Simulated assay, not measured.
Amino acid sequence: MTHIPPLSPRPLRHLSHVRRRVLTAAQLRGQGVTGADVNERCRPGGPWQRILPGVFLLHPGPSTAEERVHAALLYAARSNAPAPARAVHIPVQPGAEDPHAAQPYADALITGLAALALHGFTSAAPLLSLDTIDVLVPRMRRLRSTGCVRIVRTPSLPAPAFVTGVPVAAVPRALADAVAELTDAGAVHQLLTEAVRDGYCEPASVVKELTAARLLGRPHVMGAVDSLKAEGRAIAETHLYRMVHEHGLPDPVWNVDLRLPGGPHLGGLDAYWPEQAVAVELDIRTPRQDKDAVWAEYARKREYLERLGITVVHITPRKLRAAMEQQAAVVRTALMASNDRDPAAHVVVLPR
């Protein structure tokens, strides 16, 4: 049999790194491995196997989850340049990364349930149990789904997130691609709830991706999104409670409606300090709503309340989670500034 040069001073079979266990035909050719050599080694009972078209697993037996993900990316990548011909002369210290081991994954991202599993979702099935791995590629790529790979096309490839070095779609996009293949309402609800509850993303970003994917017309998706909005509000309210108590703000009255005595309803507020006439309102708009119309309503209410001498602080769930101390400082400043303002009009405070 033709001698196959090793990819490092150690024999190929002793290399455990996944990027040494899964290689493309182009990469093997770059190491002097001919097509005939590959065919010989991939015969039944041989030491290698073809895992996907043009992608080879350099050991017998089942592939690992990591190998399947790597193979899927190599199959879908725009180009897989062969490793440098002189790679054989580069010594690799035990435990060190071979400088030529990194492979390009041009124009390919893991998405869908596989991406959610990599992000750490407990409600997503483990990678090894997935029949298919979704790979996101630009629409014009000439690729077809095959084996364990399902090709998902997009007009513009989003910027990747990296999980243990693997390029994956950000959580909102991965959710949309996963939901597109799911018909079980419970599974959709679990994924969306975990995304918001565990802080992977905001409800608005999820709804934006679902809207772009034209999935909101599906009844089981619409139901999950309605629950998602309620979940997002509950989480934001919890963070608001934490902000008040952990940053030493005085206790407000929570979830109230304001009315003028004997007059019209002024609107609901998430927190209100009657003595200082300072209010906090959570901004939980989603892309499903008409942004201009909803914001106009926010602005009208705020303007009316401020004409009555009530300071309104708008806080988004994202800012509340990512910059709680800064938001607490804004509220504290508004409370302290109340001493320098004219007294506010008398309003009736009712539970909401």
Rank of each mutant, 00 (worst) to 15 (best):
L58M: 07
S123E: 12
D342G: 11
P250W: 04
P172D: 06
L23N: 00
S129D: 14
P11E: 06
L182H: 12
A76D: 03
L113W: 07
R50M: 11
A81S: 13
V221S: 02
P11M: 09
V206D: 07
G232Y: 01
L228V: 07
A230Y: 09
A76T: 03
D290N: 12
G268H: 13
T193W: 09
H17C: 10
V188N: 02
A159C: 08
P53V: 02
A299V: 11
R29G: 00
R341T: 10
P47D: 09
A195L: 04
K301R: 15
D342N: 10
H265Q: 06
L7R: 14
G112S: 03
A322M: 13
H247S: 04
R259I: 08
R321A: 14
A279F: 00
A87W: 10
R302Q: 15
A299R: 12
V149P: 05
T286Q: 06
L175D: 09
H3V: 10
L305V: 04
E66T: 14
A102L: 12
A96Y: 06
D257V: 12
L308W: 03
R341V: 06
L282C: 09
K301M: 12
W273C: 06
A337C: 06
Q31Y: 00
L350N: 10
A329E: 12
V347A: 03
L269E: 08
A213Y: 09
S205R: 11
H239Y: 13
T311F: 05
D198P: 02
T2K: 12
A180R: 13
A159W: 11
L228H: 06
A344Y: 04
P104I: 00
M222S: 15
T34W: 05
G120Q: 01
P53L: 05
N39V: 10
A83L: 15
P94M: 02
G45A: 08
A174C: 05
L136N: 07
P82S: 07
P343G: 04
R43K: 11
A125M: 14
E246Y: 01
D251P: 07
T211S: 14
R259D: 13
V348R: 10
E237S: 11
D340G: 02
A174D: 06
G186V: 13
G32L: 00
S79R: 14
W295K: 14
R10F: 10
W273F: 04
Y200C: 05
L305T: 02
V225T: 01
P287T: 00
A187Q: 15
V22Y: 00
R68G: 07
L23F: 01
T183Y: 15
L73E: 05
T132V: 13
P351T: 05
L136R: 02
D340N: 13
V137G: 01
I235C: 13
N339M: 12
A170W: 08
A102G: 11
A71D: 01
R242D: 14
Q31E: 09
H265M: 09
A293M: 11
N255K: 13
V152E: 12
K319H: 15
P250D: 04
V163K: 07
